[in-house]
Computed example of a mutant assay.
Amino acid sequence: MRRLFFALALVIAFAPVPARAAGCDGVTVVVDYRGLGGGVQQGCAPGSPASGTAALTAAGFGYTYASRQAGFVCRINGRPGTDADKCVNASPATAYWSYWHAPAGGSWTYSNQGAATYVPARGTVQGWAFGAGEQPGIAPPAAPAPPAPQQPPAQPPVQQPPAQQPPGQQQPPAVTTTTTAPASSTAAPPSSSESAAPSSSGPSSSAAGQTSAPAVAEKSRQVQEKSGTGWLWTLLGVLVIAALVVAGVLVARRRRAAEEE
Protein backbone atom coordinates (compact mmCIF):
# COMPACT_ATOMS: atom_id res chain seq x y z
CA MET A 1 0.00 0.00 0.00
CA ARG A 2 2.82 2.40 0.87
CA ARG A 3 4.48 1.66 -2.45
CA LEU A 4 1.21 2.47 -4.24
CA PHE A 5 0.89 5.80 -2.47
CA PHE A 6 4.53 6.55 -3.21
CA ALA A 7 4.02 5.78 -6.90
CA LEU A 8 0.94 8.03 -7.01
CA ALA A 9 2.91 10.80 -5.33
CA LEU A 10 5.61 10.50 -8.00
CA VAL A 11 3.02 10.61 -10.76
CA ILE A 12 1.42 13.73 -9.27
CA ALA A 13 4.78 15.38 -8.72
CA PHE A 14 5.83 14.90 -12.31
CA ALA A 15 2.46 15.36 -13.93
CA PRO A 16 2.67 18.10 -16.54
CA VAL A 17 1.06 21.40 -15.59
CA PRO A 18 -1.25 22.81 -18.27
CA ALA A 19 0.73 25.10 -20.54
CA ARG A 20 -1.14 28.34 -19.90
CA ALA A 21 1.87 30.60 -20.42
CA ALA A 22 0.91 31.35 -24.01
CA GLY A 23 -2.16 33.15 -22.77
CA CYS A 24 -0.92 34.15 -19.30
CA ASP A 25 -2.08 37.52 -18.05
CA GLY A 26 0.46 37.75 -15.22
CA VAL A 27 3.78 35.98 -14.58
CA THR A 28 4.75 32.78 -16.40
CA VAL A 29 6.60 30.18 -14.32
CA VAL A 30 8.82 27.49 -15.92
CA VAL A 31 10.06 24.56 -13.81
CA ASP A 32 12.70 22.24 -15.34
CA TYR A 33 12.80 18.73 -13.78
CA ARG A 34 15.27 17.26 -16.27
CA GLY A 35 18.03 17.06 -13.65
CA LEU A 36 15.67 14.78 -11.70
CA GLY A 37 14.70 12.64 -14.69
CA GLY A 38 11.55 14.59 -15.51
CA GLY A 39 10.52 17.17 -18.06
CA VAL A 40 9.76 20.88 -18.21
CA GLN A 41 6.50 22.22 -16.84
CA GLN A 42 4.88 25.65 -17.09
CA GLY A 43 2.33 27.52 -15.07
CA CYS A 44 0.76 30.96 -14.89
CA ALA A 45 0.57 33.22 -11.86
CA PRO A 46 -2.25 35.67 -12.64
CA GLY A 47 -1.85 39.35 -12.04
CA SER A 48 1.20 40.72 -10.19
CA PRO A 49 2.53 38.28 -7.55
CA ALA A 50 4.20 39.77 -4.48
CA SER A 51 7.34 37.62 -4.77
CA GLY A 52 8.99 34.85 -6.74
CA THR A 53 7.79 32.21 -4.30
CA ALA A 54 4.26 33.68 -4.44
CA ALA A 55 4.39 33.35 -8.23
CA LEU A 56 5.60 29.76 -7.85
CA THR A 57 2.65 28.90 -5.60
CA ALA A 58 0.09 30.78 -7.77
CA ALA A 59 1.33 28.89 -10.83
CA GLY A 60 0.50 25.56 -9.18
CA PHE A 61 3.85 24.50 -7.72
CA GLY A 62 4.57 23.76 -4.04
CA TYR A 63 7.96 24.47 -2.49
CA THR A 64 9.97 23.85 0.67
CA TYR A 65 12.57 26.03 2.41
CA ALA A 66 15.77 24.66 3.98
CA SER A 67 15.19 24.57 7.73
CA ARG A 68 18.48 26.29 8.53
CA GLN A 69 18.58 28.54 5.45
CA ALA A 70 15.58 30.88 5.51
CA GLY A 71 14.33 31.77 2.03
CA PHE A 72 16.34 29.04 0.26
CA VAL A 73 14.07 26.81 -1.87
CA CYS A 74 15.32 23.24 -1.61
CA ARG A 75 12.29 21.36 -3.00
CA ILE A 76 9.64 22.07 -5.66
CA ASN A 77 6.61 19.77 -5.64
CA GLY A 78 8.51 17.46 -3.24
CA ARG A 79 11.51 17.07 -5.56
CA PRO A 80 14.23 16.04 -4.83
CA GLY A 81 13.09 13.59 -2.19
CA THR A 82 14.32 13.37 1.35
CA ASP A 83 16.71 10.60 0.36
CA ALA A 84 18.66 13.03 -1.85
CA ASP A 85 18.36 16.26 0.16
CA LYS A 86 17.36 16.57 3.81
CA CYS A 87 16.63 20.30 3.25
CA VAL A 88 18.41 21.26 6.48
CA ASN A 89 21.13 23.43 5.02
CA ALA A 90 21.59 24.84 1.53
CA SER A 91 21.67 22.21 -1.17
CA PRO A 92 24.98 21.21 -2.76
CA ALA A 93 26.23 23.41 -5.62
CA THR A 94 25.84 20.52 -8.10
CA ALA A 95 22.23 19.71 -7.20
CA TYR A 96 20.06 22.67 -6.31
CA TRP A 97 17.18 24.73 -7.71
CA SER A 98 18.57 27.75 -9.58
CA TYR A 99 16.29 30.77 -10.04
CA TRP A 100 16.06 32.73 -13.34
CA HIS A 101 14.27 35.76 -14.82
CA ALA A 102 13.43 36.68 -18.42
CA PRO A 103 11.20 39.02 -20.36
CA ALA A 104 8.52 37.27 -22.37
CA GLY A 105 10.18 35.82 -25.46
CA GLY A 106 13.63 37.06 -24.28
CA SER A 107 16.69 35.42 -22.72
CA TRP A 108 17.26 33.91 -19.28
CA THR A 109 19.17 35.87 -16.62
CA TYR A 110 20.37 34.24 -13.38
CA SER A 111 18.77 35.89 -10.37
CA ASN A 112 21.08 37.59 -7.90
CA GLN A 113 18.23 37.79 -5.38
CA GLY A 114 16.26 35.14 -3.56
CA ALA A 115 12.78 34.24 -4.71
CA ALA A 116 11.33 35.17 -1.32
CA THR A 117 12.28 38.86 -1.77
CA TYR A 118 12.29 39.29 -5.55
CA VAL A 119 9.12 40.90 -7.00
CA PRO A 120 8.55 39.76 -10.59
CA ALA A 121 6.99 42.22 -13.00
CA ARG A 122 3.74 41.39 -14.65
CA GLY A 123 4.27 39.94 -18.10
CA THR A 124 7.71 38.46 -17.30
CA VAL A 125 8.85 34.81 -17.03
CA GLN A 126 10.35 33.16 -13.92
CA GLY A 127 12.43 29.98 -14.33
CA TRP A 128 13.57 27.19 -12.05
CA ALA A 129 16.04 24.45 -13.07
CA PHE A 130 17.48 21.61 -10.94
CA GLY A 131 21.16 20.78 -11.38
CA ALA A 132 24.50 22.51 -11.26
CA GLY A 133 23.18 25.98 -12.10
CA GLU A 134 21.97 25.30 -15.66
CA GLN A 135 19.23 27.55 -17.08
CA PRO A 136 15.81 26.09 -17.88
CA GLY A 137 15.73 23.80 -20.87
CA ILE A 138 13.22 25.87 -22.89
CA ALA A 139 13.31 29.46 -24.06
CA PRO A 140 11.11 31.94 -22.17
CA PRO A 141 7.63 31.80 -23.69
CA ALA A 142 6.68 34.76 -25.81
CA ALA A 143 4.06 37.22 -24.74
CA PRO A 144 0.57 36.41 -25.94
CA ALA A 145 -0.32 38.08 -29.18
CA PRO A 146 -2.77 40.93 -28.79
CA PRO A 147 -6.28 39.90 -29.72
CA ALA A 148 -7.14 40.62 -33.27
CA PRO A 149 -9.64 43.42 -33.61
CA GLN A 150 -13.06 42.06 -34.21
CA GLN A 151 -14.40 42.96 -37.55
CA PRO A 152 -18.00 44.02 -37.51
CA PRO A 153 -20.24 41.62 -39.37
CA ALA A 154 -20.63 42.51 -42.97
CA GLN A 155 -23.82 44.37 -43.54
CA PRO A 156 -25.85 43.33 -46.55
CA PRO A 157 -25.95 45.99 -49.19
CA VAL A 158 -28.87 48.30 -48.75
CA GLN A 159 -31.18 48.20 -51.70
CA GLN A 160 -31.88 51.72 -52.72
CA PRO A 161 -35.42 52.27 -53.98
CA PRO A 162 -35.60 53.26 -57.60
CA ALA A 163 -35.54 56.97 -58.11
CA GLN A 164 -39.01 58.30 -58.72
CA GLN A 165 -39.45 60.44 -61.71
CA PRO A 166 -40.94 63.80 -60.83
CA PRO A 167 -44.53 63.95 -62.04
CA GLY A 168 -44.97 65.93 -65.23
CA GLN A 169 -46.26 69.37 -64.70
CA GLN A 170 -49.69 69.61 -66.22
CA GLN A 171 -50.06 72.70 -68.25
CA PRO A 172 -53.36 74.45 -67.82
CA PRO A 173 -55.46 74.47 -70.95
CA ALA A 174 -55.00 77.51 -73.06
CA VAL A 175 -57.81 79.97 -72.66
CA THR A 176 -58.80 81.73 -75.82
CA THR A 177 -60.29 85.09 -75.21
CA THR A 178 -62.38 86.50 -77.98
CA THR A 179 -62.84 90.19 -77.83
CA THR A 180 -65.94 91.42 -79.62
CA ALA A 181 -65.83 94.99 -80.61
CA PRO A 182 -68.87 96.77 -79.24
CA ALA A 183 -71.33 97.89 -81.78
CA SER A 184 -71.07 101.49 -82.59
CA SER A 185 -73.87 103.50 -81.10
CA THR A 186 -73.75 105.88 -83.97
CA ALA A 187 -73.93 104.57 -87.50
CA ALA A 188 -72.04 106.38 -90.20
CA PRO A 189 -74.28 108.23 -92.60
CA PRO A 190 -74.49 106.83 -96.05
CA SER A 191 -71.77 108.07 -98.37
CA SER A 192 -72.42 110.24 -101.29
CA SER A 193 -71.89 107.26 -103.59
CA GLU A 194 -74.98 105.65 -102.11
CA SER A 195 -77.08 108.62 -103.29
CA ALA A 196 -77.49 108.30 -107.02
CA ALA A 197 -76.77 111.56 -108.81
CA PRO A 198 -79.24 112.60 -111.52
CA SER A 199 -78.31 110.90 -114.78
CA SER A 200 -78.19 112.63 -118.18
CA SER A 201 -80.65 110.00 -119.45
CA GLY A 202 -84.20 110.12 -118.20
CA PRO A 203 -85.02 106.39 -118.16
CA SER A 204 -81.66 105.42 -116.69
CA SER A 205 -81.94 108.05 -113.95
CA SER A 206 -85.38 106.80 -113.00
CA ALA A 207 -84.08 103.24 -112.88
CA ALA A 208 -81.16 104.34 -110.71
CA GLY A 209 -83.60 106.04 -108.35
CA GLN A 210 -85.73 102.91 -108.17
CA THR A 211 -82.74 100.55 -107.73
CA SER A 212 -81.14 102.65 -104.98
CA ALA A 213 -84.23 102.70 -102.81
CA PRO A 214 -84.04 99.04 -101.65
CA ALA A 215 -80.30 99.42 -100.93
CA VAL A 216 -80.92 102.52 -98.86
CA ALA A 217 -83.76 100.80 -97.02
CA GLU A 218 -81.52 97.78 -96.28
CA LYS A 219 -78.77 100.07 -95.07
CA SER A 220 -81.22 101.89 -92.85
CA ARG A 221 -82.40 98.57 -91.43
CA GLN A 222 -78.81 97.48 -90.67
CA VAL A 223 -78.08 100.81 -89.06
CA GLN A 224 -81.24 100.53 -87.01
CA GLU A 225 -80.23 97.11 -85.77
CA LYS A 226 -76.74 98.31 -84.74
CA SER A 227 -77.86 101.50 -83.08
CA GLY A 228 -80.47 102.49 -80.58
CA THR A 229 -81.32 105.54 -82.74
CA GLY A 230 -82.38 103.55 -85.80
CA TRP A 231 -85.67 105.39 -86.19
CA LEU A 232 -83.81 108.62 -86.89
CA TRP A 233 -81.77 107.05 -89.60
CA THR A 234 -84.84 105.37 -91.04
CA LEU A 235 -86.58 108.69 -91.34
CA LEU A 236 -83.50 110.21 -92.92
CA GLY A 237 -83.32 107.34 -95.39
CA VAL A 238 -86.96 107.76 -96.38
CA LEU A 239 -86.44 111.46 -97.00
CA VAL A 240 -83.39 110.74 -99.13
CA ILE A 241 -85.29 108.17 -101.13
CA ALA A 242 -88.18 110.56 -101.64
CA ALA A 243 -85.81 113.32 -102.71
CA LEU A 244 -84.16 111.02 -105.21
CA VAL A 245 -87.48 109.93 -106.62
CA VAL A 246 -88.68 113.51 -106.97
CA ALA A 247 -85.39 114.53 -108.56
CA GLY A 248 -85.60 111.69 -110.97
CA VAL A 249 -89.13 112.57 -111.96
CA LEU A 250 -88.19 116.21 -112.51
CA VAL A 251 -85.22 115.32 -114.61
CA ALA A 252 -87.28 112.97 -116.72
CA ARG A 253 -89.94 115.60 -117.37
CA ARG A 254 -87.36 118.17 -118.39
CA ARG A 255 -85.85 115.80 -120.86
CA ARG A 256 -89.21 114.99 -122.34
CA ALA A 257 -90.06 118.67 -122.63
CA ALA A 258 -86.78 119.36 -124.33
CA GLU A 259 -87.30 116.55 -126.78
CA GLU A 260 -90.79 117.72 -127.65
CA GLU A 261 -89.63 121.20 -128.46
Rank of each mutant, 00 (worst) to 15 (best):
Gly78Ser: 11
Leu8Val: 13
Pro80Thr: 03
Thr82Asp: 13
Val73Asp: 04
Gly37Lys: 08
Gly37Arg: 08
Leu36Ser: 14
Ile12Tyr: 10
Ala90Tyr: 11
Ala21Asn: 01
Ile12His: 06
Pro46Ser: 13
Val29Thr: 02
Gly52Pro: 00
Tyr33Met: 14
Ala45Met: 13
Gly81Cys: 03
Asp32Gly: 05
Gly43Ser: 13
Phe5Cys: 10
Gln41Gly: 06
Pro46Arg: 07
Tyr63Ala: 14
Phe14Val: 03
Gly39Val: 08
Gly37Trp: 06
Ala15Ile: 10
Ala15Asn: 12
Ala15Leu: 15
Cys44Glu: 11
Ile76His: 04
Gly60Val: 08
Ala21Tyr: 00
Gly23Lys: 04
Gly38Cys: 05
Cys74Asn: 10
Gln42Ala: 03
Val17Thr: 15
Ala54Lys: 01
Gly71Cys: 14
Thr53Ile: 02
Gly52Asp: 02
Ala54Met: 04
Ser51Phe: 03
Gly62Lys: 07
Ala58Pro: 00
Gly43Leu: 09
Leu56Tyr: 00
Val11Thr: 13
Ala9Thr: 12
Asp32Asn: 09
Ala9Asp: 13
Phe61Asp: 09
Val17Ala: 14
Gly47Asp: 08
Asp85Lys: 01
Thr82Lys: 06
Pro49Tyr: 04
Tyr63Cys: 13
Ala84Gln: 08
Thr82Leu: 15
Gly60Trp: 06
Val29Arg: 00
Pro46Leu: 09
Leu8Pro: 03
Gly71Ala: 06
Asp83Glu: 06
Val29His: 00
Ala13Trp: 01
Gln69His: 10
Asp85Tyr: 02
Ala84Asp: 11
Ala15Gly: 09
Asn77Ser: 15
Ala84Ser: 06
Arg79Thr: 07
Arg20Val: 11
Ala13His: 02
Ser67Pro: 11
Phe14Met: 09
Ala50Tyr: 06
Ala22Val: 07
Gln69Thr: 12
Gly52Ile: 01
Tyr33Asp: 08
Gly71Glu: 07
Val40Cys: 07
Gly39Asn: 12
Gly38Thr: 08
Ala7Pro: 08
Ala70Pro: 13
Asp32Ile: 06
Ala59Leu: 05
Gly62Thr: 15
Asp83Val: 13
Phe72Ser: 12
Arg34Pro: 06
Gly81Ala: 09
Val27Asp: 00
Gln41Met: 07
Thr57Lys: 06
Arg2Ser: 14
Gly62Ile: 07
Val30Ile: 14
Val29Pro: 00
Tyr65Trp: 14
Ala13Ile: 01
Phe61Gln: 04
Phe6Gln: 15
Cys87Lys: 00
Cys74Lys: 05
Tyr33Arg: 11
Val73Arg: 01
Ala59Cys: 11
Gly38Trp: 10
Gly35Phe: 09
Ala66Cys: 14
Leu36Cys: 13
Ala84Leu: 09
Arg3Met: 06
Gln41Cys: 11
Cys44Asp: 12
Val31Cys: 11
Leu36Trp: 07
Pro49Glu: 01
Thr82Ser: 10
